[in-house]
Every structure is written in C-alpha cells, then in structure tokens.
Computed example of a mutant assay.
Amino acid sequence: MAQNTSSAVMQQRLDHGDKLNYFPTPLWATRALIRWIIENIGPVEGLTCLEPACGQGHMARALAEFFQSVSASDLVDRGYGTQADFLFPDDTSEFDWIITNPPFSLAEEFILRALLRARVGVAMLVRTAFIEGEGRYLKLFRPAPPRAFLQFVERVPMFKGVVRNPAELYWDEEAQKWRRPSSATAYSWVVWVKDHDGRPELAWIPPSRRKLERPGDYEVTP
C-alpha cells in the first residue's frame, strides 16, 4: 500500500503530537481484551506484539503480562518505548499482534497499516461510534471484516494526558471542584484475525475493572 503523504494527513500527524490528543488507557481495559483473545482465539504467551501509540506505556505494560515480547513506540517521546511514526515508518517489521488505542482522527489509517504488518491479529480500542458511517464501512469494514466487536458494558474512563484511578477524587482545575473520574464516552475493542472470512461477532466485555485492576496501575512509568 502506498503511503499517503497528503498535507492533510501530515497535519493530522502533527496534531497527534499535541499532548491534548493523548488519552492513556487504564490497564484493566487491556487485560480484559487479552482475556477474550485467549479464550476465543488462542494463547499469546509465545507471540510478539507491537503497541505503536504507547504514550507513557500503560497499555504496553498490560500487554507485557501476556506476550512473549512487546515493542512499544509513539510519534511523541513521552518517556516510554521508542520514537517512531507508525504511519510513515522507517522500520516495517512484522509482529504477531498489533494492539493500540489509536488517535481517533487517524484510527482508519492505523488499522489499515496494522493489517499489513500483523501476522496473526489486530485489536484497536475505539469509541463505539467509530463503527458508524458509510465511508468507513466501504473503506474498512466491508473489505476487511473484523473478527469481533467487543463492547464494554461499563465505561472506560479516559482523560487527556493522565490515567486516573476511578476510586479516588481529583481536583478539576477547569471546574474548580473535586470530582470522581467518569466518562460519557463508550468504548469498544475491534479485533481482526488474519484469514477470518466470516461475519463479525458482537460480544460484551462484562464488568471488569474491579476484577482486573492491580496495585501500581495508575502510576506513571519513568
């Protein structure tokens, strides 16, 4: 596939570098995905994985609990992994799985690139509204049907630039009040498996936060 070097895409990549486009993923949400993969697709302990939008490493840390090896990179150096542009890479190495929370405006491009480089499967954490749209259906979902849409039944709280512990209060500078982390946005995992030619499965991820949280999950990795 030829790389898209249009000015619009390049500007989006610059926008991706803005810290306001960084929404770290709570580790429990990644663990819930891998549990589903192991139960429905197969074991991953001997496989490799790439996390190409790693931020400060929250998702990569959870993936490393399961995979043999995890490579982590990001367009912006946030102190974890290597600095690399997934859409315009110098290195096009293949991995068994590619799993990430892509920048929303570039999710299609991330998925299409990942499908070229993954040997076994791809999983992307997206807003549930991502599955809507005629254009996205024609460009992505019809030619490359997912193996499954995995909808969280509980909200996955994601905030700009920080992972917050839902059990703790935090001071909201903008509102000038104490709040508990919450989210009005619904998220789901979309999973592709190579050579899958059937209809996508719609499944629900049951309440998982309390069961899958671990001590240290909300600490920033140096």
Rank of each mutant, 00 (worst) to 15 (best):
A107K: 05
D172R: 00
A129Q: 13
V153L: 11
V190Y: 00
D85C: 09
D197G: 13
P207D: 14
E168K: 00
P157M: 03
R127F: 06
D195A: 11
F86K: 00
P200C: 13
R31K: 02
P166K: 00
T92V: 09
E201Q: 15
E173C: 06
L140Q: 13
T128C: 13
F130P: 01
A2H: 09
L63Y: 03
P145D: 11
G121P: 07
Y218A: 06
D172H: 05
S71A: 15
L116H: 08
R209E: 14
R127V: 06
A129R: 11
S188Q: 15
E39P: 02
W97P: 10
A2E: 15
S182T: 06
S6H: 05
M10Q: 14
V162H: 00
R117Y: 04
V190E: 07
Q83P: 03
M1H: 05
I205D: 14
E168G: 03
P215W: 06
Y80N: 10
R147K: 09
Q83Y: 05
K211I: 08
N4W: 02
V220I: 13
S93W: 01
V156N: 08
E154Y: 01
A8T: 10
R78K: 05
W204M: 15
I205M: 12
W204D: 14
P166W: 01
Y80P: 08
L112Y: 07
E154H: 04
E94W: 02
G17F: 04
S93I: 02
A60Q: 05
L212Y: 05
G81R: 02
S73Q: 14
P52Y: 03
C49A: 12
P43K: 00
D172W: 01
G46L: 06
L150D: 15
A167N: 12
E173L: 06
L150K: 01
I37M: 08
L112A: 09
T5W: 05
R117P: 02
D77K: 03
G46W: 00
Y137E: 15
G135C: 10
E168N: 07
A53P: 10
S105G: 10
P166T: 04
A129D: 15
A144M: 13
D85E: 13
R13Q: 12
I34K: 03
P145F: 08
P52L: 11
P145K: 12
R155G: 14
R147C: 07
V70W: 00
A53N: 11
I98S: 12
R155E: 14
Y218W: 06
Y170M: 07
A114H: 07
E51N: 10
P181L: 01
V126K: 02
P200S: 14
Y187F: 14
L14H: 09
D197V: 04
D217I: 01
Q12F: 04
T30R: 01
D172V: 01
T30V: 15
R214H: 07
D195H: 04
V153F: 07
R142V: 08
A175R: 08
P215D: 15
K160W: 01
Y22H: 12
L115Y: 03
M10E: 12
D77T: 03
R136E: 12
G17C: 10
A107Q: 13
D18M: 13
T30E: 06
D217A: 04
P166G: 07
A32C: 07
F88Y: 09
S188I: 08
L106S: 11
D217V: 00
D91T: 09
D197K: 04
E201C: 11
R147W: 11
Q12E: 14
